[in-house]
């Protein structure tokens, strides 16, 4: 099968959906002529024109709010917030409007929109351009949260997100855009709420998503040398969350390590750990371990930045502790 980059997979997903449905539009900062700060909308402006691919002012709140207004009146907007760090500016619209409108209005409206954004550390761009704020989104009823780790998943999940009638926050890791992988040219959908077992194993379950999935995979490969067989599960969508796949794996391995790049306090991993405790305490032979980002503003200096996020060795150490 052909291999394309993660960002090209995103472009292809939007291209296909824009062809399929005239109501899909793209709006955000630098998404048109520039093609997106990370190139994830490249070519759409040339193909679909300025009516459907709209450069906006640096107005995150208006970008999110206008997407909502368009969504509740018949369009399917894809709004881009250039960095998830800037989502603070759009949080009122996202949390108070997009997430709540359907419920508050008695189920009489839908808000079919995708808010694409980019997150994570790795480029030495410091505390305002490197965060992993997915836990904030996961906390809010009414939003879906998608975080793909491979080009294949990115395309199928973005297409599902665009077609879904709910507001979806779609977070892409900045270090994944250039990553290549097999992506079918055909139209395919990956449903929301279906985890993917990225590697089968029998001794320990590692749950990891987005860029940390790859860190977990490297750790799992190395653990094989020590005869520890790790099963690596990528939830792919954090909301809805495919807890069944995680529990089935824990039933087999009895041990669980969860990896996330977000700040450790109130991390996505904390929620997954609690869900497993509530639904599968008897399956566990050891306490669950979290491997998370440090509770610190992400620093610029490469050595400090590396120290602030999980690495392969952190995951290996955590696995060895639970496997003792």
């Amino acid at each position: 099968m052909r291999e394309i980059t993660f960002k090209d997979a995103l472009v292809e997903a939007m291209q296909e959906e824009m062809k399929r449905d005239d109501n899909v539009l793209v709006m955000g900062e630098d998404v048109a002529i520039y093609g997106g700060a990370y190139g994830a909308t490249k070519g759409l402006y040339e193909q679909f024109g300025e009516e459907r691919v709209r450069d906006t002012a640096i107005s995150e709140s208006a970008i999110a709010g206008a997407a909502i207004g368009a969504a509740i009146t018949g369009m399917r907007p894809i709004a881009e917030i250039m960095y998830i760090d800037f989502i603070t500016q759009a949080m009122d619209q996202l949390v108070n409007q997009a997430a709540k409108m359907r419920y508050m209005f008695g189920g009489k409206t839908t808000v079919p929109m995708v808010l694409r954004t980019e997150g994570g550390a790795g480029r030495c761009i410091a505390a305002h351009h490197s965060q992993s704020l997915e836990a904030w989104i996961m906390h809010v009823p009414g939003l879906y949260l998608v975080m793909p780790s491979t080009p294949y998943d990115a395309k199928g999940l973005l297409k599902a997100s665009i077609r879904d009638d709910n507001p979806v926050v779609f977070i892409e890791h900045k270090m994944l855009y250039g990553m290549k992988g097999e992506v079918p040219e055909k139209d395919y959908i990956i449903p929301l709420g279906v985890a993917d077992i990225k590697k089968e194993g029998s001794d320990v379950t590692i749950v990891a998503y987005s860029r940390q999935l790859h860190v977990a995979m490297e750790a799992a490969a190395e653990l094989e040398k020590d005869n520890i067989s790790a099963e690596v599960i990528d939830p792919r969508t954090l909301k809805p969350l495919d807890l069944d796949t995680i529990l089935t794996s824990v039933k087999k391995t009895s041990k669980l390590v969860i990896v996330s790049e977000g700040y450790k306090t109130c991390n996505v991993a904390s929620e997954i750990a609690m869900l497993v405790t509530e639904h599968g305490f008897d399956l566990l032979d050891a306490p669950i371990k979290r491997v998370c980002g440090a509770d610190v503003p992400v620093p610029m200096s490469p050595v400090l930045e590396d120290a602030a996020i999980p690495n392969k060795q952190n995951v290996i150490n955590a696995v060895k502790e639970v496997c003792q």
Binding site: A62, G65, A71, I72, G74, N96, Q97, M104, F105, T109
Partner: peptide, 28 residues
Amino acid sequence: ADVTKGNLGATGIVASNLPVAVGAALSA
């Protein structure tokens, strides 16, 4: 709200419906 009658809703957050109106106008 009465979306079917074109009332896109009231809001508890002051000023928060301005961009929603802009989006509805974009959609129209």
